[in-house]
Computed example of a mutant assay.
Amino acid sequence: MSVICEEWKVSIRRACGALEFDRSTFHYQSRKRDQAGIEARIKAICETRVRYGYRRVHVMLQREGWDINVKRTHRIYNELGLQLRNKTPKRRVKVKLRDDRMPATRPNDVWAMDFVHDQLAAGKKIRVLTVVDTFSRFSPVIDPRFSYRAEDVVATLERICAKVGYPRTIRVDQGSEFVSRDLDLWAYVKGVTLDFSRPGKPTDNAFIEAFNGRFRSECLNTHWFLTLADAREKMEDWLRYYNEDRPHGAIGHKPPITLQNPGGAASPPP
């Protein structure tokens, strides 16, 4: 329209009248907000929490103080092509690790958590929750049960955090117990960040994989467990040895307790 006004040497009013073009449309200024920042944040959330739909993404945005309604979150989520695909083969799932993932610099900075499966002598299966501090290699708990639900994970974490303190971050995989609302709510209330691994990428949580390998070769493969109580007793004995006596090559062949507790005080006898 401006070009026409210049070429014809007429006003905007006459040009709009000649072309039957509404002047309000010509003078309209778009009020659309810049959404580059919110798009980048939604992408970052979905890169680390690959099983989150737009509703959970919206909850995370609200927690962080973003002024956005759920309809806009849904629209941007769809425009970015982030819709969940329930039956996508693992080989086609791609997600980047967070760029700000840094190594731990002190105890309780980063924990790693996972499950190990085994069975009693009679054949009944058990699940063992394992946790390790990635800085000191100290393990605050090994907890065997016949079954584990999300609320059981929260109860175990609350019990051990009362003794050793709360971590800043916990690295976990995409297991149903770890992506649950119960654990997410607990982490939010306690100020703990859940750092999820990529599906099919155990190396994203290498510290707990290495710990579980030692636990299996040195404890699970060397004992018969008659009952759950017997399994718990033997596992606690091994855990005490691992934390307080066993030399760890990654920390200068020292026992983990020397980094977790600079005084190196051993736990009281059972």
Rank of each mutant, 00 (worst) to 15 (best):
Pro107Asn: 10
Leu97Gln: 13
Asp99Arg: 12
Asp118Leu: 08
Val128Tyr: 00
Asp114His: 07
Asp114Ser: 10
Met102Ile: 05
Asp109Asn: 15
Asp114Ile: 09
Asn108Tyr: 03
Ser176Thr: 07
Leu97Met: 12
Arg168Leu: 07
Ala162Leu: 12
Tyr148Ala: 02
Val179Asn: 00
Pro140Ser: 12
Val131Ala: 02
Thr88Met: 15
Leu157Gly: 04
Trp186Gln: 04
Gly165Pro: 05
Ala162Asp: 10
Val179Lys: 06
Ala187Ser: 14
Glu79Lys: 01
Met102Ser: 04
Val132Asp: 06
Gln119Ser: 15
Thr134Asn: 10
Gln83Thr: 09
Trp111Ser: 10
Ser139Gly: 03
Asp118Arg: 07
Ala122Thr: 06
Ile76Ser: 08
Arg137Pro: 08
Thr169Phe: 08
Ala112Arg: 12
Thr105Gln: 15
Phe138Asn: 09
Thr105Leu: 14
Leu120Lys: 00
Val153Gly: 07
Arg127Asp: 08
Val132Pro: 02
Tyr188Ala: 14
Leu80Phe: 10
Arg91Lys: 14
Ile170Cys: 11
Arg137Asp: 09
Val179His: 04
Arg92Phe: 12
Val132Leu: 06
Phe178Arg: 05
Ile142Asp: 00
Val164Lys: 00
Ala121Val: 07
Val132Arg: 02
Met113His: 06
Arg85Thr: 00
Val141Trp: 01
Ala162Thr: 05
Leu82Trp: 01
His117Met: 14
Glu151Ala: 05
Thr130Asp: 13
His74Arg: 14
Val189Arg: 09
Leu80Asp: 10
Val172Glu: 06
Val172Asp: 09
Thr169Gly: 02
Leu183Ile: 03
Ser176Gly: 03
Arg92Lys: 12
Val154Ala: 00
Ala162Tyr: 01
Lys163Ala: 12
Ala121Phe: 05
Gly81Val: 13
Arg137Lys: 15
Leu84Phe: 01
Leu84Arg: 09
Ala122Phe: 04
Asn108Cys: 08
Glu151Pro: 03
Glu79Asn: 12
Thr88Leu: 15
Val128Gln: 07
Arg145Asp: 15
Ala104Thr: 07
Gly165Thr: 04
Ile126Ala: 13
Asp182Arg: 08
Arg145Met: 14
Ala162Pro: 02
Phe138Ser: 13
Val153Gln: 04
Arg85Tyr: 07
Glu158Gly: 12
Asp143Phe: 02
Asp118Phe: 03
His117Lys: 10
Pro89Trp: 02
Phe115Pro: 08
Lys96Gly: 13
Val128Met: 14
Lys87Val: 04
Val172Trp: 03
Val172Tyr: 08
Glu177His: 07
Glu158Ile: 00
Ala162Gln: 09
Tyr166Arg: 06
Lys124Cys: 08
Phe178Pro: 02
Met102Lys: 06
Ala162Trp: 03
Ile160Thr: 11
Leu183Gln: 08
Phe135Gly: 03
